[in-house]
């Protein structure tokens, strides 16, 4: 008994009454008392009305399911398409596959030939590793990312960024190069893309502490693998094994610019992110990093009942 009773020594504690009311335990002595005690019976009657009122208050608003479906339909479809080749003998679909592969090879070769004709001598350059992305073709900006970028208040415009372009960088790229500063500015203006990594990019800054919930098949195994996924410079604090919740909570100290690499690594390793806050896998353009140290907390949740 942890609680005071209405009639000390006679009536059960209210916690015991609640347990009986919820049908979680039915000790005969207490049940016998309740049958003869009008006070306890009245309390139980109040509990029943309270539960009914709570259940009524929990009714979802009308039309919510349709709004949920609508929100899901606006997301990019990731439904696995049924394979055309599923259930068919190899000899039936192998010729189609070979024809497709040959077509891809021919188109690739033609593209490479055209590109190498247009750019006969691509000069070597020694840009820092984190700026090399500009030597590669940009993917088309995703609508979601662009919207997030444009929604952020008081962000520097591409013109602002041109002021920060270091002269030493400009001389490192000859004008004929695909990655010349002029080309970069054009790409930025046309594509609305964020700036390179030599300054603060036009994105959101991270708070000092970020917490992400990741769904994994086996939290214990994922926790063991976590250390191998960390980017260099990140430090993992071992969780205290006080209870099941803290066993699956890992704290990682790292510079904010490495958090994107970390979430990308986790995503590639099969972890599934459920938290909506930044950084999100594959969305580095939404981040502005300054190199400040941050604490990134990983909460691992299993996809199996425990």
């Amino acid at each position: 008994m942890t609680t005071e009773t209405r009639h000390p020594g006679l009536c059960p504690a209210c916690q015991d009454l609640n347990v009986i009311h919820d049908g979680q335990s039915e000790p005969a002595a207490i049940l016998a008392h309740i049958e003869t005690c009008p006070d306890c019976a009245a309390v139980l009657a109040v509990y029943r009305r309270l539960d009914q009122a709570v259940a009524d208050a929990l009714r979802p608003p009308a039309g919510m399911a349709e709004r949920v479906k609508s929100a899901c339909r606006q997301q990019p479809v990731r439904q696995p398409a049924p394979s055309r080749f599923q259930g068919r003998p190899v000899l039936e679909w192998l010729p189609s596959l070979l024809r497709a592969a040959a077509a891809v090879a021919v188109i690739g070769a033609a593209g490479w030939l055209a590109w190498s004709t247009a750019h006969p001598a691509r000069p070597p350059f020694a840009a820092p590793a984190d700026t090399v992305v500009f030597g590669q073709p940009y993917p088309a900006p995703e609508a979601e990312t662009v919207a997030a970028d444009t929604a952020a208040p008081a962000e520097p415009t591409p013109a602002d960024n041109s002021d920060r372009f270091p002269d030493s960088m400009a001389t490192a790229f000859p004008e004929s190069s695909l990655v010349s500063p002029q080309n970069l500015q054009l790409v930025n203006i046309a594509g609305g893309l964020t700036t390179p990594a030599w300054g603060d990019s036009a994105g959101s800054k991270l708070p000092r502490r970020i917490r992400h919930v990741w769904v994994v098949h086996d939290p214990a195994d994922a926790g063991r693998r976590l250390e191998t996924i960390l980017p260099p410079g990140a430090r993992l604090d071992r969780p205290r094994a006080a209870n099941s919740a803290s066993r699956n909570l890992f704290r990682i100290r790292l510079p904010d610019r490495d958090t994107q690499t970390l979430v990308d690594n986790l995503s590639r390793a099969g972890f599934s992110l459920v938290s909506p806050n930044l950084p999100q896998p594959g969305e580095s353009r939404r981040l502005a990093t300054t190199g400040k140290p941050v604490i990134y907390e990983v909460e691992l949740v299993g996809d199996t009942p425990q």
Binding site: T2, E4, T5, Q15, V43
Partner: peptide, 12 residues
Amino acid sequence: GDSRGPMAVPAP
């Protein structure tokens, strides 16, 4: 998680 103090239940 157990409550430490008494929890008085008012008489109905």
